[in-house]
Design a binder for these strands. Structure first.
Lengths: 119, 119
DNA sequence: TTGTCATGCCTCAAGCCTTGAGGTATACCC
DNA sequence: GGGTATACCTCAAGGCTTGAGGCATGACAA
């Protein structure tokens, strides 16, 4: 879809889902997540920190993530992992993602049956 | 992703792509499109007129659609169909959609290889 | 010592999109 | 006359990613 500066096509909600997915497997901190998402998507996605951090904060305030401070060589990291509710939410997101993919594929291929000549 | 009132997850840019797809096959008017999208997606999507009409106007002003007035039983309809540039744009959109689907599926399944222990 | 780079956290304005409700007008039927 | 379906349109609200920016530490070279 051309070069949209913001609100890029098809990416709405993807960061949140991938964050929940990665943090369901193991704990990570924000800066690490930013790069893990890039790696996990084979460089297709490159969500910046300005995208990731707000999502982490929101998900934690919703009880879908929990955090812990970790000191590594004098530096403080905030490590997040998914709560049971977070994993449940992930399952829901994946489900609705798959329904969207199915519906789009269907509309893109045949589509439009069931109403022979609406006009 | 819960019950978001606006900007629903995963739907960003989908209406535009489906509109281009349907209008690449045959000409339609706005009111008809609203229902054709619902049908083509097996009731998964139900984009309202407040979503469809602005997209039609924008795509026409971008030269991706062209319109013609049609009189049917005393009523005026504005019928749209895709221009060659519109079809090219559709091909692009479908391509980037498929890349997104591939990347998400990859990240959702295995993901995260290629960096064994970033921490 | 100074400079620079990577790490690590964070915030903010801008820009775009869908939603949902609302408004107008004609045609048809009872 | 009233109700419904058709057909067009507009608008505020809410939500999301982008891209840039700000802080602070540690390591490493010049």
């Amino acid at each position: 879809m051309g070069e949209r500066k913001s609100n890029p096509a098809f990416l709405n909600g993807i960061p949140e889902m991938l964050i929940l997915q990665l943090l369901s497997r193991r704990a990570m901190y924000g800066y690490e997540l930013v790069q893990a998402i890039t790696a996990a998507s084979r460089e297709e996605f490159e969500f910046g920190e300005g995208c990731v951090y707000p999502i982490l904060h929101r998900l934690e305030s919703q009880g879908l993530l929990k955090s812990a401070k970790e000191s590594v060589s004098g530096r403080v990291r905030v490590v997040y992992c998914a709560t049971p509710r977070g994993k449940a939410q992930l399952a829901q997101s994946v489900g609705s993602w798959q329904r969207v993919v199915t519906a789009v594929n269907h509309a893109l291929q045949g589509g439009e049956r069931g109403r022979p000549g609406l006009a």
